[in-house]
Design a protein around this nucleic acid. Structure first.
Lengths: 226, 226
DNA sequence: GTCGATATTATGTGCAGACATATTCACACC
DNA sequence: GGTGTGAATATGTCTGCACATAATATCGAC
């Protein structure tokens, strides 16, 4: 029993074998380190990992216990649209439908924390897989953050932003919605088709960057890795 | 500059300030440790953390670089339905619609890795928020894993499973679908309404436990914490 | 008994040093 | 020119120790 990964696996094994049941306190780091003949830091690393995944709960002085009400943590990878489509082995296509400066609807301004009346750059575009439209993008961009802009006919805002405004923070929400008549026409669907909606708000250190709504055509599945 | 969290924040600051641009290699752990007057292990902890979030890419001998094509990692908490509804301040309700042993459809058997012809326990139930139906659950359960079963009229399978078959592995997928006539009737919706679908397959150490499809009524939003 | 100071305890984090491992690069060799 | 080998190097991980911090338990004063 050497190495924090082996120790992590052994802890998981004991939990699954009901040796340590949910809600119960497990032995201290010290005791486990002694039992397995490793340093306490090694046990700590393993237990910290499991606590991060939500399997264990740790509190100073109290000890480590197996989580009683497990909250499944699903980690999703959200790549740039082009790479996501290409990863499925399909040919990627892109078309800019509209680009204009305008006043955003109140809901968008609110989410970005902007005062009403400001003006943002609005982009509407379509993404294609093997020539078929699969994703409608509706984006509002704060021109103050990115004063020099590229030609969005050639590169998608999505892709340009991750390269030029890296490592922003944000907020993502998922939902479902019926396609409006306009959406159905653009995505070549029947009106009312169920769309998978991703809404994303992006910030760069307290400054709003962009809000975007991605409407995925039916057939789209988002999937956890593990 | 002491403490791995401060160091992590400083690294992030430098990336956002474009001192270290995407694709570029940052100084070695040794160099950073010296610059900030801390041990290499402390820098390692901070950089490892950022690599886990996808901000940095690290390879032995090569060094640490700022990720060029960031893949946003969204972490979702997926609690038990009851707790999710109660967390929104609504009253939770639950009704078992059907419980029967049956042969699962091929798609379900395939996902669970079971040979065709086996029999599973099928549960169909409705979850209510403030008295209104919001979630339709269609579940197939492997009775071999959990030989002694509770009264599913009183406790939802969801909740009973997390308490009695803890820390399973699994696989979750999200999509959107139009409500069938039957689904619309049960959820008190118009036929064709856009449902948010969660499909989940659960295993316990190479043994299939359950497959479930959750159909959320419109209005449901799944949300990242950060 | 109640309250508050103090001791105890388990985890959180840090340090210095060591060795392991993956990868690259230079160089000798054919 | 191509190829294999070994040196160099950055990260990965472990050890043993120390002190910090948070939460609890204990015990004395009143």
């Amino acid at each position: 029993m050497t190495g924090w990964e082996e120790i992590r696996d052994e802890v998981l094994r004991r939990i699954r074998a009901r040796l340590w049941v949910p809600g119960a306190t497990i032995p201290t780091e010290e005791a486990l380190a002694q039992e397995w003949g490793v340093a306490r830091a090694t046990v700590n690393r393993a237990l910290r990992e499991l606590a991060g995944e939500g399997v264990l709960e740790r509190r100073r002085k109290v000890g480590t216990r197996v989580t009683l009400h497990p909250v499944r943590k699903a980690t999703l990878d959200i790549p740039v649209t082009r790479r996501e489509i290409e990863a499925r082995g399909q040919r990627y296509g892109y078309r800019l439908l509209a680009q204009a400066e305008a006043e955003p609807p109140p809901a968008v301004a609110l989410r970005l924390g902007l005062p009403p009346g400001g003006r943002l750059l609005r982009l509407e575009c379509l993404h294609f897989a093997d020539g078929r439209p699969v994703l409608l993008e509706d984006r509002w961009l704060n021109p103050e953050v990115v004063p020099v802009l590229p030609d969005f006919h050639r590169i998608s805002a999505n892709e340009w932003l991750v390269a030029h405004v890296p490592w922003t923070t944000g907020d993502i929400a998922f939902s479902a919605a019926n396609a409006t008549a306009a959406e159905a026409r653009l995505l070549d669907l029947a009106e009312g088709a169920a769309l998978f909606i991703v809404e994303r708000t992006t910030w760069e250190s307290d400054c709003p960057v962009t809000w975007v709504r991605l409407a995925h055509a039916p057939g789209y599945r988002m999937h956890t890795l593990l």
